[in-house]
Amino acid sequence: MRGVGADEAEPAGRAVGRVATSRTGGLLRWLGGAAATALLLALVLPLLALALSTGTDELAAGLHDPSFFPALGLSLRTSLWSLAAVIAGGTPLAYAVARSERPSVRWVERLVDLPVVLPPAVLGVGLLAAFGRQGLFGGGLEALGVQVAFSEAAVVLAQTVVAAPFFVQSAIAAFRQVDPDALLVARTLGASAEHAMLRVALPAAAPGLIAGAGLAWARALGEFGATLLFAGNLVGRTQTLPLAIYAALEQDVRVAVALALVLGGVGTLLLLGLRGLPALLRRRSGGAFDVG
């Protein structure tokens, strides 16, 4: 195989080089594959370990724990409220950001990302500094007879702040994908600006909006740090499922594991549902109109 002639010296050299490259390439590929597999395992390991270490007895004990149903109910209620707040404010915000051509919208986008990079503990203390009894608005609100901190409203507020970026970023990306010329066409066909937004931009962006809403909901459901600091851990009032897990861990690990399994299961179902929903929607709208 090896060439010996002068003409082939160079190609042979290149072949050697290629062998060397492919050897380091193979090593790199192997290392990369191993690291990727390890990370993937680490990602599924917590849920897997929970499922494997929880017997039906433990699960039953966890579900019968007096803190379980109040915590589950509170978690569902508050996370749905915060999801509603996130969608109600996030949709018009994302639409305005996506449609704007002003350079200043970059700053709005960065502001929206702030809660993602700030530690939840910082957000919790920050919310206390705003709404706590000694906070910026605490005195004024107290005069009106409203106490936000350590209430269910505080839980909703903490979840809203933490979850909103996930929805808004996803919604901005979805609205940016909508063809601006399609919106102009809708207008020339007689639709007002609001009409075009509701009937063209919103449905065209729906898959991205739904995915973002799911992420935000999952994030709200799992919120822990900011809630603990700003809303406290009051059973039946502000103790959400993640906080109940934390409280149970100090008394009975089995209960904590069972509660964690339930919360993990809900999150997983949400994720799977979200992956499937947009495709399902598309399929449904695809065959909706039969021409009679």
Partner: peptide, 20 residues
């Protein structure tokens, strides 16, 4: 505004509504 102009517009991208 566009809706008051009675103008038919076909953009280069077609501008078809993808969900309809």
């Amino acid at each position: 505004p566009p809706e008051a102009r009675n103008v038919g517009y076909v953009p280069q991208s077609h501008g078809l509504f993808p969900h309809l």
